[in-house]
Amino acid sequence: MTKKVKNRLIKILLSLLILIIAVLIITLNLRDNIVYFYSPTELLKMQTNETKIMRVGGLVKKNSINSDGSKKFTFIITDEISEINVVFQGILPNLFAEEKGAVVEGSYVNNSLFRADKVLAKHDENYMPPEVINALKDNGKWQGQ
C-alpha cells in the first residue's frame, strides 16, 4: 500500500466511524426525548400504562381551579368532550385563566388524573396554542376564525 492510499483509507474509515456513532447516538436519543401532545379525548382513549412525559392541552374549565392555599393547584382541562383533572405544584403562568387555552406537561397517573410538572402559557392574552386549536377543530368545537 502506498502512503497516499493508506492516508485516504484512514480518512475514510475515520469518517465512517464518526458517522455511524453519530447516527446511532442521535436516533437513540431522539426516541427517548420526544414529548407527544394529546387532547384529553385522545389521552383517555389510549392504553394508559404509559409513564412517559407527555403534553395535554385544551381549555381550562370554568370554576375548576382550586388551590389548597399553598402552591398546589388542581384544575380541569377540557376539549369540550372529555375532561382531564390536573394536579400541579408551582407557579402558574401570568395568563393562566379559566376558559383560556393551556398546555400542561407531565405524566398520566390514572382515572383521568394528570400530574403536571409544567404549565405552559404564552404571554399573549389572545394566544391559543396551535395544538389546542387543532384539537378543538378536530372535535368541531372550535369557535375562533
Binding site: I25, D32, V35, F37
Partner: peptide
C-alpha cells in the same frame, strides 16, 4: 398529523460527546 416536541435533553445528551 401528530404533535410532538423534542426536549432540550435530546440536544444536551447528543451534542456532549461531539
Amino acid at each position: 398529523e401528530k404533535s410532538l416536541t423534542v426536549g432540550p435533553q435530546f440536544y444536551v445528551v447528543t451534542i456532549t460527546p461531539i
